[in-house]
């Protein structure tokens, strides 16, 4: 660890001071420690050495670029040469750009359609997993895809759905002689959506499980005594008690779905120029291609405008979600 700043050992007198002020034999709980107690005073001096490095790095490498993105999105700029201030022109332009609209539409599809599918499946899996034998093992296995780079799934899908690939050879015995062209430009995006559902559900199941596992068993026992049906138990016990975990998952998915890039980039092995077919672009891909693909003059303004809109989408949704999910937290 790098923080080597030693505070001068002035603590002794101060510490004795604390001792005399605290009534003996009473442990001070975390919350109501008096503001003036000396360890606190001393701790406060650590603000700069402790928080400083993290604050500086985070501000310079994260917050400043984020603000810079807003700034760049107001300019016409090709990455070098003069920046021309154009106000909100870039936003107007991308909204007239078919490509952007379809990319942003795809991002929304991922966010809502894939999101809904993941949640329904994850919740169903949680309910089944809740008290089945071997649940730890199942959970460990379905969590693992979360640790794999999405690139891997994209490349594998290219192999599996090849015209002469595994899916078609599996379908052949069932009399499918004319299988759909899986990797045709129009079919790639739906395939990406299916792949994402398959690879992401396990992660959210794991998180939901952690919430469901927190429910103390006597609630279920009470349900059994009261003769509640499985549905009633779900409606009146499980759902209300895991509501906050659902909210967290929804926020997580919102944030991570808008970033989806790698899997689109390589899905099915990419086409000639290294850029995936436009039908499967997401907003993140749109940003990247417009700035760095080297195919045309980089349009930094439009590219950042697209990214800033994604950020706006996230912010609005997170605020809405927090509001919608704000119920009386059930304490148990």
């Amino acid at each position: 660890m790098s923080i080597g700043l030693k505070e001068p050992r002035a603590g002794k007198a101060a510490a004795q001071n604390t001792a005399s002020r605290k009534p003996a034999g009473r442990k001070a709980p975390a919350q109501d420690r008096r503001p003036g107690s000396s360890i606190d005073v001393q701790r406060k001096k650590l603000l700069v050495p402790f928080v400083g490095p993290a604050f500086v790095l985070y501000t310079v490498l994260f917050i400043v670029p984020a603000l810079g993105a807003v700034w760049i999105s107001l300019h016409k700029w090709a990455g070098s040469g003069p920046m021309k201030f154009v106000g909100l022109d870039n936003y107007g332009r991308i909204f007239r750009d078919r490509l952007f609209l379809s990319s942003f539409g795809n991002t929304l599809l991922l966010l809502f359609v894939v999101g809904a599918a993941i949640f329904i499946l994850a919740f169903a899996m949680t309910l089944v997993l809740r008290d089945m034998a071997g649940k730890k093992m199942v959970r460990n296995v379905i969590f693992f895809p979360h640790l794999i780079n999405a690139l891997v799934f994209g490349v594998l899908a290219g192999f599996i759905f090849n015209p002469g690939g595994m899916v078609n050879s599996l379908l052949a015995p069932f009399g499918v002689t004319d299988p759909p062209k899986w990797l045709a430009q129009d079919n790639i995006f739906p395939l990406i959506m299916v792949t994402l559902v398959c690879t992401t559900t396990g992660y959210f199941t794991t998180i939901l499980m952690a919430g469901v596992d927190r429910i103390p068993p006597y609630y279920y026992e009470d349900c059994a005594l009261a003769g509640a049906s499985a549905f009633q138990r779900l409606r009146y016990v499980i759902l209300p008690l895991t509501w906050d975990v659902f909210g967290t998952c929804a926020v997580l998915w919102t944030i991570s779905s808008v970033k989806i890039f790698e899997i689109v980039w390589v899905f099915g092995g990419s086409s000639g120029a290294g850029v995936p077919p436009t039908q499967s672009w997401t907003a993140a891909v749109y940003t990247y291609v417009n700035a760095f693909s080297g195919q045309s003059t980089p349009a930094y303004g439009a590219a950042t405008a697209s990214a800033v809109l994604s950020l706006a989408l996230i912010s609005v949704l997170v605020v809405l979600l927090r509001r919608a999910m704000r119920r009386d937290a059930v304490e148990f």
Binding site: L61, A66, I72, Y288, A307, L311, I314
Partner: peptide, 21 residues
């Protein structure tokens, strides 16, 4: 709160300014 803010910022937002910087 300031630190938590960063959790919601997707990488593509900072991509271009970061590259320029």
């Amino acid at each position: 709160l300031y630190f938590i803010l960063g959790l919601g910022i997707p990488a593509q937002v900072i991509l271009i300014p970061l590259f320029v910087m």
